[in-house]
Write a protein that binds this DNA or RNA. Structure first.
Length: 107
DNA sequence: TGAGTGACTGTAA
DNA sequence: CTTACAGCCACTC
């Protein structure tokens, strides 16, 4: 059951591997850590994520900034993504599939 | 110990 | 093609 404790760490580990200017989905991370059904928990973990984890690069499978409201400020998440060269409109990442990064592929 | 909730996803209509 | 419903796991009260 120590593996359960690793759940958070695994999420952080994968999130930390997200390249600059790239984004991924909660389900992708969940699968990468072997908890495909716990995509929701991934978001929960990111909420508790340390500052060295780019949680702003993690969106839902639709490319929408679902957790933007959980970030400090109002548009911090969007600002961060735009700062990385991504185009965010209406809390939605344009060409999400194009910027999508699969942790398992590790491209 | 039990019940409720959530930064989601996949399938159905 | 878009919108709606149900399921799932882990965590908190």
């Amino acid at each position: 059951m120590p593996d359960k404790k690793n759940f958070y760490e695994r999420v952080y580990e994968v999130a930390r591997q997200i390249p600059y200017g790239r984004v991924t989905s909660y389900g992708a991370i969940a699968r990468a850590i072997g908890a495909a059904k716990s995509a929701r928990m991934v978001g929960f973990a990111l909420k508790n994520s340390p500052n060295d984890v780019p949680a702003h690069r993690v969106l839902n499978r639709n490319g929408v900034l679902t957790g933007k409201h959980h970030f400090p400020g109002t548009d911090l998440m969007q600002q961060l993504l735009e700062n990385e060269g991504l185009q965010v409109i209406h809390d939605q990442v344009q060409d999400f599939e194009k910027f999508f990064w699969d942790p398992q592929t590790d491209s």
